[in-house]
Design a protein around this nucleic acid. Structure first.
Lengths: 347, 347
DNA sequence: ACAGTTAAGGCAAACGTTTGCCATGTTCAA
DNA sequence: TTGAACATGGCAAACGTTTGCCTTAACTGT
């Protein structure tokens, strides 16, 4: 192509089985077996010689050759919508670490929540011999359905399999909504409201339902104001919904924001209208973004242990590949109470 | 392995050249050539037949086979420290999009700023035939040096090549520091201070130097208080440095925080001590996190156009692989002024 | 009619692995 | 002494692709 910059790892690069074999005066098969720990198939002398050469030349098996042969590729694809969302970044970071610890390499694909991109990535990764898929906030798409039909190992995170079944990692969203309701009532909120995106995912729906059901249970007959907002991301949704809410009947004394980003949208709208948060209006979020402790001391939020998702995901993926039947893993959430001053009180 | 879950893309999966060839009654070579657009090597009838079959069976060339052969892998590795940092997430997201648009797939590796992990990933990616590397905030490491020696295509982002030279995407950090100084002076700050991490990267050093130099130029003889803070991340550094600053001589009327995260750390320390931000102490950040507009209306910050990094990175990578000599790309930054009320005034 | 050209397409090697099977040679028991 | 078992290790196919070179047949010009 050009002589200034070489392809990395190309022919002249890495030492291959053949190089070692030639130098040791044995066949590639023998070297391969020794490299893979099958030491009983060669004499002690041969094993020693080959092992020495492997160490000396820094031989590392080429994953490409391996995958082609049909062995494992040690590649796992993670499909996530929009990395800009700090929650996604947290999941990605913890999954990456867990996979690396298990000897895998993660390919991260940003699907922008679009079914067509999700499909494109599923195809691309399949033909790259990805050994498994982690789909965060999956959307229904033809290729996803096809993958499920082929019984490919797929772990769903955050949002359940739109076609039902399959392993799932997340929290008990209904319970989280109920906990949020309890929190608002405990803080003396009389007329709570709820905002949510116009387009409801199953995750958000469950949180809102859990919230409403718990309120109905504890305050029968109480009407809960409910506003939705349009937008690509939860920041915009939260902002738009809050403005609708303010225009419709003024600010309530408490609001469930089913994601922290929506709470940030509410915060902005409140600031613009001179409404003091949390004194005039007490929001409760779900996610508990790491930054809350630093710059959003006004936001109590239900912490989702995204840092722990990685391990759970890798465990599920392994069980799946081992043929075990894998169900849902619901990790524990926890309300983090914050007061405006910035002190955090964990219960 | 087991019959419940299959490897995706394995033998029984994707249609291969051989499948098409068998069905069309021609050789693999012919199909390969037609699939790659070399239409002059077969009769019109053959071309039509093969093209029809390719479309019908949904044939897509297997990238593994291609890479192995020595062709291109369309794989690019991005090594980033700590995805938790919103700035890194923004760079990763925009790069992913730009690479996908250019037909590449990005592998994202979290190096945690550790030289040994950076090395491990460089090796792993090289043997997977990555066509190029994007190293964000590179640290010096043996394998990086080796990669440079082999003239592999590496683009450095955010932090310059620790061994010097090579293409770089970033901003003019000295100028950004100077702009921050101008801003503080314009806001009437009399005795500005600066906080920074104890471990100085070249990026942060440049920002701080630009700040101090500009102050010396405009206010000769002015002594600028300077505090560093330990910690793994800039949040902790900023917090620790701020507390040191407060303990040492009280809060200044203005502070340069060479990253937004450090400003968040300062904000928390100020909140704990009852210091009002920005009224008592005016911070200026560098980065301009997207969330500032929503929940940090008190923070004026120098916006780094992370969203535009992706395109610049891909362009550099292409030029590099085409053999062109690629230098530094400094993208324009811009001060975003915010007032406590939340309104944004861009200049 | 014959050499030369062109069209059409197949052969086979190469990339790096893994693995079932075969080929030696040695040892051991009956 | 002869068969069996075992130790040691090589052969070759297979994965999917690309490409230099070869073959065959038809066509062209003289």
């Amino acid at each position: 192509m050009n002589d200034r910059y070489r392809e990395p790892g190309q022919a002249s690069g890495q030492t291959s089985l053949a190089d070692i074999a030639a130098e040791a005066g044995v066949s590639v098969s023998t070297v391969s077996r020794i490299a893979n720990g099958d030491l009983g198939r060669a004499s002690a002398a041969t094993v020693a010689k080959v092992q020495r050469l492997i160490a000396e030349r820094g031989y590392r098996p080429n994953p490409i050759g391996r995958s082609l042969r049909g062995g494992d590729s040690r590649l796992v694809a993670m499909l996530a919508p929009n990395l800009d969302n700090p929650a996604m970044a947290a999941i990605a970071a913890s999954t990456e670490a867990a996979l690396r610890a298990a000897g895998y390499v993660m390919i991260l694909c940003d699907t922008h929540d679009r079914p067509d991109l999700q499909d494109e990535y599923l195809r691309a990764m399949r033909s790259r011999f990805a050994e498994g898929f982690i789909v965060v906030s999956a959307v229904a798409s033809p290729e996803l359905e096809a993958s499920l039909d082929r019984r490919e190992p797929i772990v769903f995170v955050n949002r359940r399999n739109p076609y039902g079944g399959g392993p799932f990692i997340g929290i008990d969203n209904r319970q989280a909504g109920a906990d949020a309701a309890d929190h608002l009532l405990a803080c003396g909120v009389r007329a709570p409201a709820v905002i949510h995106p116009t387009e409801l995912s199953s995750t958000i729906r469950e949180r809102v339902e859990g919230f409403l059901d718990r309120l109905e249970e504890r305050r029968p007959g109480l009407t809960v104001r409910r506003y939705d907002g349009p937008g690509d991301n939860h920041l915009d949704c939260g902002y738009a919904a809050s403005r609708r809410m303010a225009a419709d009947g003024g600010w309530p004394d408490g609001v469930l924001c089913p994601s922290d980003l929506m709470a940030y949208g509410l915060f902005r709208a409140a600031g613009e209208q001179g409404v003091r948060i949390p004194d005039d209006c007490l929001p409760v979020g779900i996610d508990d973004n790491d930054l809350n402790d630093w710059i959003a001391p006004w936001l109590s939020s239900i912490k989702i242990p995204y840092r722990r998702f990685g391990d759970a995901i890798v465990t599920s993926l392994r069980d799946l590949r081992a043929g075990g039947s894998v169900g849902e893993v619901l990790l524990p959430h926890q309300l983090i109470r914050r007061r405006s001053g910035g002190e955090t009180i964990e219960n």
